[in-house]
Amino acid sequence: MNKLSVESTPHIRSRSSVSGMMLCAIAALLPAVIAGVLYYGKNAALILLTTVGSAFLFELIGSLIIRRKQSVHDLSAVVTGLILGMLLPPDLALWKAALGSFIAIILVKQMFGGIGRNFANPAAVAWIAMRLIFAKDMTTWRVPDTGAITRVTPLVSGGTGYWDLLLGNYASYIGTGCAAALLLGMIFLCFSGIISPAAPVAFLGSFALLTWIGGYDVLSQLLTGSLVLAACFMACDYTTTPFTVSGKLLFGLGCGILTFLIRHYGGFAEGAVFAVVLMNLLTPAINRITRKHPFGAVEHKKERKKKKPEVESVSV
């Protein structure tokens, strides 16, 4: 007779896998990616290919150098590369795009322990670094219809119709223009149970409320800039956002407030990505205060600080 194999319980597993979830995220990003490529053409496609390809490569090399178990097949690097690429202007030099992937994957993700251990969203930190380093390139956009180069987006200039804003027919980053496509992707992720809508809803909701109170045009403020992308795909990143629903709501609320403050009082026209990273840093604290009370848990008696044992002095 055979030798029987022994394993710990449970013996069965659900079908969900990390790569499956990442594939869903990629699928959800695709409509916005396609819209971006349609508006900005070959150059946009090349930038996206560069960020995705280099992110994949850096993940591969990074794991090898750090001698960590190879994790490139979980596709999380592809998602990071894709989101970063979507946040870049369509005429950026390719080496600059690749540098962004390096910052995201090597500096933010691999150096801090790989997947699940990064302190902030890799794509967001990389974007902020690039925004500071390549200040001019990162603020040079192209109007899709005319091909005219512009240094301002409708966020500052205003005057673009709501439909154009919703469909992305204005000067924007590659993947942030078509808000409709981004929202569609997020709804897909929510319905397939991959993300919870709590953080995006709180993010967009609190921002809209503040904008309305401040007397600004709510819809054009909501639809322009990287806000929708940040709310839909960065504020519900697993690793860098809180666990519980109340934590997610708190996180979204903080993001909304910070975005409003940065946009209207800060030195940058964009605020959403900065807000996400700032809130990422608060995530461990939010996780701590929103922890659920375990069922039937009895609070442990607080241990009084024990006096340090007196060190016997050794005479020489």
Binding site: R117, T244, K292
Partner: peptide, 26 residues
């Protein structure tokens, strides 16, 4: 027995939502 490769935790929180005792397995 199927080979199961153990990956790193991505902190998706599924375990927390499945736990009847409201613990945070991750």
């Amino acid at each position: 027995k199927k080979e199961r490769t153990v990956g790193d935790c991505i902190r998706c929180g599924k375990c927390m939502r499945a736990c009847p005792m409201n613990l945070i397995p991750a």
